[in-house]
Nucleic acid binder design. Structure first.
Lengths: 144, 144
DNA sequence: CGTCTAAATAGAAATTATTTTCATTTATTC
DNA sequence: GAATAAATGAAAATAATTTCTATTTAGACG
């Protein structure tokens, strides 16, 4: 199984302690984190750690597909570890911030529809599904 | 046919000259505009016009469903007039910034899928489709 | 048509997320 | 163990958006 160092080598990124730590933090988080939250955790592990380093690495890792982004309705950005390399989308729980993969993408059909009705070409799409996961609704529903 | 003043009354918003102007600017734009771009046009029409007024009104109008938002991949926000009151999504051309309605939403299916596989409840979704419209690809393709 | 009141606004300042710059450090290559 | 390109820290810059507050104005009412 590939460890974090191998993942970075594949992306042609140097294996620095900080990069590994960021990956590690996200891997263990199980929920999505803001850059600032990642920074806060990094400061517990490193004496000197700049916020730009966090931002830079999160973007690089996301560009490499190792981690994914959540765009909130308020357009704030969050990141989480996602091992799934296939094209897919996510369901994010706005209560506990857990992320689940959706093995479902209507993009193909949309592409056809766009091509057929507008004669246009689709280049990218943003898709984010928000809601309340089963754990959180159980908490509130009291059925526990 | 409802004019802009009627639309504002329905939303219980006062019919101020500036609000009408913002609506008018978007209605005539045919492409999506940034708050700053709306402000620039407003400054040509009003001696005194504050940027917060533009932001406030755009949000109010969007909340009322009279105008719609485009969230770009860089997470910048744009607005455009959209008369379609049904739930739908948009195709936006990143070249000329024209917006077309997509009479297509896979949201129902996603909701079912989320419910079935995750036992979770969907509350909202962001969906944005970017591409090149037929006019723009004709320009580039040289088929004109 | 004047008066009243809540809503709307201007202008300035504050906030906040994010990015840039650049000198210094460090991981990798040989 | 050098050499070199990549990575980093710290500070500053940027830019979108929001807040604050005193003033103005639209719409209701008489």
């Amino acid at each position: 199984m590939k460890d974090h160092s191998d993942i970075l080598k594949e992306l042609e990124l140097k294996t620095t302690p900080k990069r590994l730590a960021i990956l590690d933090i996200l891997r263990n988080a199980s929920i999505y984190l803001s850059p600032d939250e990642v920074w806060t955790t990094m400061k517990e592990r490193f004496r000197a750690i700049g916020l730009p380093t966090v931002y830079r690495n999160l973007e690089e890792l996301a560009a490499g597909g190792v981690i994914s982004k959540v765009i909130h309705p308020d357009r704030k950005l969050y990141y989480f570890f996602c091992g799934n390399r296939e094209h897919h989308h996510h369901f994010v729980c706005t209560s506990c911030r857990k992320v689940d993969d959706l093995n479902f993408c209507a993009f193909g059909e949309i592409e056809k529809e766009v091509s057929r009705t507008l004669n246009a070409t689709v280049s990218s799409h943003i898709m984010q599904v928000f809601g309340i996961c089963s754990d959180c609704s159980a908490d509130k529903g009291g059925r526990q």
